[in-house]
Design a protein around this nucleic acid. Structure first.
Lengths: 250, 250
DNA sequence: CGCGAACTTGATATTTGTCAACTAAGGTGG
DNA sequence: CCACCTTAGTTGACAAATATCAAGTTCGCG
């Protein structure tokens, strides 16, 4: 199976074969983490950077009143905490949604990359910055869309993201979340998730069973949720004008 | 008046006098931009990085149905589009909330900093990463708090952020937004903003008049909104244990 | 086979949105 | 300096979206 990290980072920089070989060795030696465990917690100052290679994890915070907000999904190819090298301590938690394979990469290895491997470094910053773009889109999603569109938008995003790392086919992907997880992601209750899902099913938009989500009509779901993937910045670099001022492709 | 950029970046790295002098010259020559103008738009590939030195701007997106979501406030010391160097094109718009002084910094100057000024580079990445942390907190805010707490939380955040750049006193700051701007920030309607504000006023928490927001009881407002500033990562570095002398990425 | 977690359903409550009318304030031209 | 006009904010009545509570139901797993 192709390496999700490499598949992803190809979008952020023009990697060489040497870069790919290095990333391949970097992302080997994953350890299994059980479902519903924390990978890191708020306040931690981890020595290693964590990279998801299989399964799902998520960023989340819990408020004093016990309410939980999931702020990002970490799927294969995603780094959990690249930023910790600079920020010092985690300002949120990361937990596994399901069984998950994670590689621990010592910070000094990351630092070494930063000094001697400019394309990989660039690709990692590209990855951090697209995470930020995704966060902005989630904010739009929560602020301006009602629950049904918001959920549909999330499904569209996940389809595209998982396709780029080889973890989704044309119209479906493994979706190992509970409805409660989904509720805490969208900022609604799990009761409402259940009802909205039934509506999406009734409209013939999605099927969700056996931990797999199938989108029955992808263009329709994208239109329904006004999904515009620009924020994912997924155009392969080699397909783009290299320097500034060029007309946008697409 | 002290330079907001320097005041801010001191939190992200241990700057030298030389660094400060460089930042000082970098942030001079601001041009005035009128209120309610766009600084950059989605799809742009700007040649310059923009730095706010006075006034307020905000990041926003507009959906096909006309709804607007404000995703960040840019106050003195904030960069508008540091990420564009890597992502290539803007995935959102930036507009002025009020008259605003902005410095245009050529991308090549930023690149040069990245090569020869490691502390400044580190501080700029710190700034980008705290922006991301702020975004995460806004997501929590929108997803899990009701409108009154959410608004209170925003006020607390702004007080702290503006204090660090010398733009707020102990309990108040210039707040040049309309209630509609605030509504599009919190993901509620302007009618609801009006009502929530009256409630906060009635509870003796805030006064907002003449474009100035005054928090009558700061600890009370922080408790009310369960404001926890860890996500702003504002501890001056010299007050923290300095761990590894790792080089910045890039 | 039975237990518990996840999901569903129905009734009702709360929060927030919508619409429309009204008031206040600031700017402009006469 | 006043009349007017526009924009921002306020208010009330009502509607829609979503939350809450409580009671089922289903299903995987020991």
């Amino acid at each position: 199976m192709a390496n999700p990290l490499i598949l992803k980072l190809e979008h952020g920089a023009d990697l060489t074969d040497e870069d790919r070989a290095l990333l391949q060795s970097l992302s080997s030696g994953a350890r299994q983490i059980q479902a519903h465990r924390d990978v890191i917690d708020e306040g931690d100052r981890p020595e290693n950077v964590h990279l998801v290679m299989e399964g799902w994890a998520y960023r989340y915070k819990v408020l004093p009143n016990g309410k939980r907000q999931i702020m990002a999904f970490l799927v294969p190819g995603d780094f959990c905490d690249l930023h910790v090298a600079i920020l010092g301590e985690m300002d949120h938690n990361i937990g596994t949604a399901w069984g998950c394979k994670v590689v621990d990469i010592p910070r000094k290895v990351i630092d070494e990359l930063g000094q001697n491997h400019p394309r990989i470094t660039r690709a990692m910053w590209w990855s951090t910055l697209t995470d930020e773009g995704t966060l902005r889109e989630w904010l739009v999603n929560m602020g301006q869309r009602q629950a049904d569109r918001q959920m549909a938008h999330l499904f569209c995003e996940l389809l595209v993201r998982l396709q780029t790392v080889g973890c989704a086919d044309e119209d479906s992907f493994e979706f190992p979340l509970s409805q409660t997880d989904l509720a805490d992601t969208l900022g609604i209750t799990s009761v409402h998730v259940s009802r909205v899902l039934q509506e999406l099913r009734a409209q013939g938009l999605v099927i969700w069973q056996d931990k797999r989500l199938r989108i029955l009509d992808v263009p329709k779901l994208k239109a329904f949720s006004s999904f515009e993937p620009r924020y994912l910045h997924l155009n392969k670099r080699r397909n783009r004008g290299i320097s500034h001022g060029n007309a946008p492709l697409r």
